[in-house]
Amino acid sequence: MRRDIFTDEHEAFRDMVRQFIAREVTPYHEQWERDGVVSRDVWRAAGRAGLLGIDIDEKYGGGGNPDYRYYAVMNEEFARAGATGPMFNVHNDMIGRYLDRLCTPEQRERWLPGYCSGDLIAAIAMTEPGAGSDLQGIRTTATRTGDHYVLNGQKTFISNGQLADIVIVVARTDPAQGHKGISLLVVERDMPGFARGRNLDKIGLHAQDTSELFFTDVRVPGANLLGAEGGGFVALMQNLPRERVTIGVFALAVADKAFEDTLAYVKQRQAFGQPIGSFQHSKFLLAELATELAVARAFTDKAIAAHCDDELSVQEASMVKWWDTELCNRVTDRCVQLHGGYGYMREYPVARAWADSRVQSIFGGTTEIQKEIIGRSLGL
C-alpha cells in the first residue's frame, strides 16, 4: 500500500539508515549475539551518522529536528534488518524524551552531548522483580539526606543495562504519598553502591544486553533529580504513549518483513510437485495475513501522524501497541509454520524474528494492561 505520511526527505533518510545498517550492524550482528552485547563502537558510529538525538538541540550535537517520523523510519529499517542488538530506540524514542523535557540547563550541558555522540549510553530502570506493568508497585526507595538521595532497591529486565553510562531510576522518594511520591533519579556509571547483575539469558534478542541492576545505599546528588520531586509518575505517564507507539511501529515492521520473506519462500518451495503457496490453505492464510497487515498499517500510520501533531491519545497508543505486537506474534508464528522445518532454523530470518519479537507484547506494558487502559477509556 502507498504510504502518505513520509516525504522525500524521510525516504532519503531511510536510504541512509539502510546503508548504515549494512555497513555498521549486519556484518557484526552474529558476533554480538554470541557475545550477548553489542560493541560500543556501533553507538559512536550512530552518533557520527546523526542517528542519536535527532530531536535534541543542535548545540548539544543533536539534529534539532522534532519530527517523530524520522525515528519511525529508523525503527522500521532496524526491524526489517533483524538488527535487534543496538537498542537505539530505547535511547532515542524513550529516554531522550525524559532528558529533553526534564533536564535542567546544567544537566543538559552535562549529559546531552555524550548522549548525542554515542559516548554516553542511556537506560531507564522501571521494572522490578515484584513490579512489572504496575508502576505503583515499585519498592525502590530514595531517601533525601542533605544534598543527596540515598537509593536502595533492585531493578530487572533493563535494556542497555550492561552498557549504560546513565540510568534513569524510578524510585519512591515519599512512600506515604502513593504515586505522588515517585521520582526520577539519574544514576551514573561509577557511583558507589551501583552494581550490575548478570546479563539475562533470554529466548531471543541475544545481542541485546538486558540486565539486573542493584542499588545499595547509592548516594545520588540532588543535582541528579530529573524533573520535580514527586513528579516521576506523571512524567512516566506522559512518555509511555510514545514508547508504546514506537514498540508498535517496530513490531509491525518485523511482521511485514516476515510476511514478505514467507511469500517469496512459498512461491519457490515445492511439495507434491507444486509450490506450497498454490495450496488453498497457504493461499487463504497469506491472504488473511496480507489483509490484517494492511489494516494495521493504515491505523499505525494514522497514529504516527497523530503523535507528530501531539494529538495521539493514551488509549489510541495502547491500541497500536497491543494490536501490532499481537499481530506480529501471529504473523511470525504462521510464517514459521509455512517454512516447515526450515522455519525452526536460526539461519532463516523468520526463525529469529519469531524468537526476537515474542517479548514485544510483554514489555512497555503487557497486552492485558493495554486492554485495561482502553477499557477504562470506555467508562468500564
Results as ranks from 00 to 15, higher is better:
110 R>T: 01
96 G>Y: 10
341 G>F: 11
1 M>I: 01
230 G>R: 06
27 P>W: 07
180 K>S: 02
212 E>N: 12
90 V>C: 14
308 C>A: 14
356 D>N: 15
80 R>L: 12
48 R>Y: 01
135 L>S: 10
20 F>H: 10
359 V>D: 03
151 L>H: 09
265 Y>Q: 12
213 L>P: 00
185 L>H: 02
53 G>L: 11
100 D>E: 07
109 E>F: 08
58 E>L: 11
38 V>C: 04
5 I>T: 02
100 D>L: 14
201 D>H: 08
269 R>S: 09
229 E>T: 14
342 Y>W: 13
230 G>Y: 06
227 G>V: 02
377 S>V: 10
132 G>I: 02
65 N>W: 09
269 R>L: 09
97 R>K: 14
187 V>A: 06
84 T>M: 04
234 V>K: 12
2 R>W: 06
164 A>N: 00
82 G>R: 07
357 S>N: 10
92 N>S: 08
294 A>K: 07
349 P>R: 13
112 L>W: 08
292 E>Q: 14
275 P>C: 13
169 V>W: 00
7 T>S: 15
371 K>M: 07
72 A>F: 13
140 T>N: 05
363 F>M: 02
253 A>V: 05
323 W>Y: 12
357 S>T: 05
270 Q>A: 02
276 I>R: 15
360 Q>F: 15
167 V>F: 00
310 D>H: 14
120 L>Q: 03
174 D>A: 15
322 W>S: 02
354 W>Q: 09
332 T>C: 13
325 T>I: 11
187 V>G: 00
274 Q>D: 01
123 A>R: 06
17 V>R: 10
353 A>Q: 10
380 L>D: 06
187 V>L: 03
234 V>R: 12
187 V>T: 01
64 G>H: 12
93 D>V: 08
70 Y>L: 15
277 G>H: 08
52 L>H: 09
276 I>P: 00
131 A>F: 00
245 V>Y: 08
231 G>M: 08
132 G>Y: 05
232 G>L: 09
162 Q>L: 14
356 D>I: 10
178 G>K: 06
101 R>T: 06
137 G>E: 05
35 D>N: 08
186 V>M: 13
343 G>T: 05
129 P>D: 04
138 I>G: 02
110 R>Q: 03
162 Q>W: 02
245 V>E: 05
217 D>R: 15
109 E>A: 15
211 S>I: 01
220 V>S: 01
154 Q>W: 03
369 I>D: 05
354 W>K: 11
131 A>P: 00
266 V>I: 12
298 A>T: 07
14 R>I: 03
310 D>E: 13
215 F>M: 05
206 H>L: 14
230 G>Q: 10
76 E>T: 04
363 F>C: 01
277 G>I: 11
152 N>H: 08
222 G>V: 02
67 D>P: 04
78 F>N: 03
220 V>A: 05
75 N>V: 06
367 T>V: 14
300 T>P: 00
100 D>M: 12
331 V>N: 09
71 Y>N: 09
90 V>F: 04
217 D>F: 07
237 M>V: 04
117 S>W: 05
103 C>G: 04
204 G>M: 05
165 D>T: 07
189 R>K: 15
253 A>C: 06
194 F>S: 04
81 A>N: 05
114 G>E: 07
240 L>V: 14
265 Y>K: 09
